[in-house]
Design a protein around this nucleic acid. Structure first.
Lengths: 230, 230
DNA sequence: CATCGGATATGGTCTGACCATACTGTGGTC
DNA sequence: GACCACAGTATGGTCAGACCATATCCGATG
């Protein structure tokens, strides 16, 4: 009998092959954000596959925040490499929360972890606090819970960015975005937001004062107040 | 003249509409992992779009670790809802690292943050350490750097899982996977791994002993030894 | 020189076909 | 009745070709 004993466990799908090729090009040619990928039809011909398969690969890359497609003609058109992990992370968290595969508590705990860490780092590094201050002042003018949450989100994301680590910043933004609706509920339940604002002032002061320990404590107290049930 | 003044700012693409519909169904019907989605052709007919658009939406969901497609017939075939954020996160990190949009230092810092946090929580909760012990013993038998890194990864992922937070566990696994190649290089550069193993023993002891402070210190010291340049 | 309009390149969508895969049911065989 | 072989069929995976929408480019025209 002929050799039929092995057979690969799972056939790699064509679009996965396309993905591998593109990823290989990126690392091989040292492509970075701003560079353009060949057009879909051209890529399909180069790789000897149909345009559909190329398109499915593009969709994956777009989902991962690695390319951005633009129709039309000219230097801005076509598939351009970008680096936008935020939206990808947000989609990921939102969907898995919707699937009940993640609990809100896990998200909030992770947030607490990141914020404590970021606050400590920002204080140690005496980071630039202009973005933090701006968000803090915006909060004072907020009239509705939605508005408040919006500025609150900006404050906490600025805090994460102040740590100087883009990855934690991106995770933080995604965590906030995916739980926005719960944040609004929490603020409505609390009613009064003056205490939350005072917390922010304390965090800000600790960072500008360069006191990491106090900054971490302030963040911990703040989140304990915002999510008392957790 | 007819009303042409408005025009939506950006036309939503068909597959995005499909995505929104599917996501709506998930949250509305309370679908969870294990449930099946309609077949591609059927979904296309229901939504009044082509199968290509449905397929592109499926590709997105698959990329985000939310569905898994299987050809054939029967209860296991078709698009099944799953919850596998790990692979999605891994792909995301790997690609953005390849794009030089993230630096290794940021990844390692994030890892340090998670591991300290997880070790502290695991110690506080007196978590089950059987997985940790198994990985620790596997490490002793490792002959090559690759083998060592493999068991080392298992140890650190078990550590993250021991915190009881699936999100941090998933992030940890993705961080490790996306930087595997650098980990092997680091181990090769070090040569001797006995010190690293002693660190692991110390971490393990702190957790089983229920001492969060010591657990965090042990993790910090361990990573400082493994990545001295950072 | 400025402006307008067609040519063109690009992504987005649709249709219909075919293939590979894996279960389902049917019928025959023992 | 139990078992097995095989055709049927529902599913995802891929392909080819067409058409549309959009945005630039470029040449003709004033």
């Amino acid at each position: 009998m002929t050799d039929t004993r092995w057979r690969p466990v799972k056939r790699t799908r064509t679009f996965e092959d396309v993905l591998a090729q593109i990823e290989h090009r990126i690392s091989e040619d040292g492509l970075t954000a701003g560079d353009r990928l060949p057009a879909e039809r051209q890529l399909a011909e180069q790789l000897g596959v149909s345009r559909s398969s190329v398109r499915e690969a593009m969709r994956v890359l777009e989902t991962l925040g690695v390319v951005s497609s633009q129709a039309g003609r000219g230097p801005d058109a076509g598939a351009v490499l970008v680096s936008r992990p935020d939206t990808a992370l947000t989609d990921l968290l939102r969907l898995h929360l919707g699937l009940a595969a993640l609990e809100l508590r896990e998200v909030v705990d992770t947030r607490l972890m990141i914020e404590r860490w970021a606050a400590g780092h920002a204080a140690t590094a005496r980071a630039d606090t202009s973005a933090l201050t701006a968000a803090y002042e915006g909060m004072a003018a907020a009239r509705t819970p939605e508005e408040f949450v919006e500025h609150d989100t900006a404050f906490h994301c600025a805090l994460a960015d102040a740590s100087g680590n883009r990855l934690t910043g991106a995770i933080m933004r995604s965590l906030r975005d995916s739980m926005r609706r719960y944040a609004v509920e929490a603020v409505e339940r609390l009613g009064d937001t003056t205490a939350l604002q005072a917390d922010h002032a304390r965090i800000l002061a600790a960072i500008t004062g360069g006191d990491p320990g106090e900054a971490e404590r302030a963040v911990t107290d703040h989140l304990a107040r915002a999510y008392p049930s957790l």
